[in-house]
Amino acid sequence: MHLAYPAVLAALLFCTGLYGVLARRNAILVLMSVELMLNAVNLNLVAFDVWLSEAAQDTLHSGQALTLFTIAIAAAEIGIGLAIVLAVHRNRGTSDIDKLRDTAEGPEADGPDSDAAAAQADRAGKAEAAA
């Protein structure tokens, strides 16, 4: 088999996942796109492992071992990621990553930013009163 077939497919899948990460708004859809990117990397690893095991007499099979590791780490990542998304949804009522701008710098100070600033100021005043 020509090596360009899996390599080109992996490149296309990776760029599809890249588009999904950049363009999606729901956090779970972003996680799906990350899974696509990881799978593209896995396809590359498997294809090059099969190629090198024949062409370079590689007996270490590092490609397949790394593929298994990547799959396991992706499973851990999706678990942690979904836990974080659920915690954010429980606290904020949304999983829309465009609305989670608490740490963003910008000229506009609306929404949660102003609330956080007010809470900060109030907390400072409270500490002064207590001291």
Binding site: L9, L13, T16, G17, Y19, G20, M32, L36
Partner: peptide, 9 residues
């Protein structure tokens, strides 16, 4: 596979 990935995103 590529078509399904495109529909996914």
């Amino acid at each position: 596979t590529f078509g399904a990935a495109l529909v996914t995103v």
